[in-house]
Structures are given as C-alpha cells and as structure tokens.
C-alpha cells in the first residue's frame, strides 16, 4: 500500500505537469493540440539519449548516447520539446487554417510521428524504444522505498514550481491576451494583439513543460517506447483537464490527481485475467473516454470552473465619498 501511494503520487507529479502544460494551450489559448503528447515523447527520448551511454549494435540503435548527467538531460529535454513545439506551431498555427483543420493536422502528425519513430530503428531504437536509462542518484545508497519516496518528492516539488509559473502567467496581461484569443481571436487581432506570435509562444512554452514531464518519466521508468505516447494518452490528459476544469490551474492539478488515482492507478489493482493481460489497459481507456464524455456533457466547466479575476480598483470618486 505504501508503494502504491508513492507510485500514484509520482504519477500525479508528472501527469500534473502535463496537464498544466496542456492547460496553457487549451485552457488559456483555446488551441486543441492532439500532438501535445509528442512533445512529452521528444523530451523523454532526448533525456534518454543524452544520459545513456553509446548505443550497442546489434542489440540497440540510437543517436547520441552521450552518457551525460541527468540534469543536462532534463535541460536538453525541455529545450528540445520547446523547439519541437515551435516548429510544429510555425508550420500549422497562424496560417488561415480553421481550428478544425488545425486539430486534424495535429492528430495526423502525432500518429505519423509515432509510426516514423517505430519504423526508424536508428533514431530511438524503433518500436523497442530506449531501455536501461540510468536513474539519477540510484547508487546514492538509498533503499528501494527511500529512492521511490525521494523521486516522488522531487516530482511533486517540480509540479509545485510549474504550478507557480502557470499561475503567474494566468494572472498576467499575457494570460489575459491568451484568453481573448480563446474567446474571439478576430477581436483580439483587431485590438492590436499579434495572435500568431502569442500562439506560437504559448505553444512553445506548453511543449517545453511537456518535455520536462517526459524527462521525469523516462528517468523514473528507465525505459520509453512508442506505445507510451499513443493518441489515447492525449485523451487521458484532456480528461484530467476537463475533470478539474480547463482554464483553472488548481483544477488541472486536482483533476489529474483524481483521474490518475481512480482511473489509471486504481485499475491496476484489479486482478488481471490470466489469458487476457491487455484487458486492463483496454478497460482503462474505455473508462477514461466515457468519463471525458460524461464530464463534457454534464459538467463542461469541470469541478473547479475558471474564475473571473476581480478588478481591484477603487475609483477616485468612490474614494472621496
């Protein structure tokens, strides 16, 4: 039970970061990016090949293999995922593509990139993926439980930092402009906002956060392959966001905690079926999608709806009398 709790909270840590990053894109700016999960994958792969030693053909094939310390891996992951977001954004945002097409294009991109990575063995070891990624401080003399607990604490601290970053953004003029883009981007342009630049910035920013989450995941699990970033993972993040309340950072985190605990980690407690091991993940996907539909239908603003900030200005007249 102790280890279940630790694992769950660790997952809440990185899934929470993922949800906050998506909240920047979807909750604030109203951009539905189904290739979001690819940014996470970019972060994971880059962190992996930076910290892994040289590839050893014929058993493994991958680029780089620099054997650098983990923190450089994390920094590179954030940078690479941000760069990826910027490239995708520059390609598909801002042109006169309707929101509908844009989302379709991101979905196509996500699926095709997954295929490309699986097919191309030389890049990140194809469909086998990266394995035996060295865990940071694993030889520092901690017990197994102690290590797991420490990793959890690190993840939750990072989640806290990301939360503060996102919250500062929400309260800023930048966040306000993003919300105008979500509400009516035509009006936004007509009042002097360069919406392409704004979208590109938030796209890059959100992707970079996903990259951080990806690095945390690969260092935690020690392995990463294309099965870990299918389209259903994007649905999972969307579900977390909608349950909590899109546009609300605390909602995003709590929604993630709820969905991860009850739907993702919880389903692992169901005893497996001997002759059908895939049934549990299948049921998990089914439940998540049904939950998303139910929330959209009956509580579209989530458990914690977006709050409208109060305007804290005392008018000069009112001050006088």
């Amino acid at each position: 039970m102790f280890i279940f709790l630790i694992t769950t909270l660790t997952y809440v840590g990185f899934q929470g970061i993922l949800s906050l990053g998506m909240n920047l894109q979807w909750g604030y700016a109203g951009i539905l990016n189904l290739a979001y999960i690819v940014s996470m994958a970019v972060g994971a792969y880059v962190a992996g090949v930076i910290s892994l030693g040289k590839a050893q053909p014929p058993s493994t094939f991958y680029v780089l293999g620099l054997g650098l310390p983990f923190y450089l891996g994390i920094i590179a992951a954030i940078a690479a995922a941000g760069l990826f977001g910027a490239i995708v954004g520059a390609l598909v945002l801002g042109r006169k593509i309707r929101a509908n097409y844009f989302t379709v294009a991101t979905l196509v991109l996500a699926v095709v990139l997954a295929q490309l990575i699986s097919q191309t063995t030389g890049l990140f070891n194809g469909s086998e993926g990266l394995i035996a990624v060295p865990q940071p401080f694993v030889n520092a003399g901690l017990t197994y439980n102690g290590y797991q607990a420490s990793y959890m604490v690190v993840c939750l601290i990072l989640l806290g930092i990301v939360y503060v970053i996102c919250e500062v953004l929400r309260r800023s003029g930048f966040g306000r402009t993003l919300r105008t883009i979500r509400e009516d981007e035509i009006a936004s342009q007509v009042f002097g906002h360069n919406i392409f630049a704004m979208k590109l910035k938030i796209f890059t920013f959100g992707s970079a956060l996903a990259g951080l989450a990806g690095a945390l995941i690969i260092f935690y699990v020690g392995a990463f392959n294309p099965a870990g970033w299918s389209v259903s993972e994007t649905i999972f993040i969307l579900t977390c966001l909608f349950v909590g309340g899109s546009g609300n950072n605390i909602g995003a985190v709590i929604g993630t905690a709820i969905v991860v605990t009850f739907f993702s980690q919880g389903t692992q407690l169901i005893p497996g079926f001997q002759n059908y091991p895939e049934l549990i993940p299948v049921l998990r996907n089914l439940l998540i999608a049904a939950l998303l539909l139910a929330v959209l239908r009956w509580r579209p603003s989530g458990l914690f709806p977006e709050r409208i900030p109060k305007y804290d200005h005392q008018p000069p007249a009112a001050a006088k009398g």
Binding site: R176, T177, I308
Partner: peptide, 16 residues
Amino acid sequence: SRLWEKLSVAENLMAA
C-alpha cells in the same frame, strides 16, 4: 458584437 465573453467587463477593456 465580438466581445470576449468569458472575460469580465473590466478585462475586456484591459485587453483592449
């Protein structure tokens, strides 16, 4: 009218 509907009245001006 193209207002930013989920922004407050004051925010509509701040953003303009």
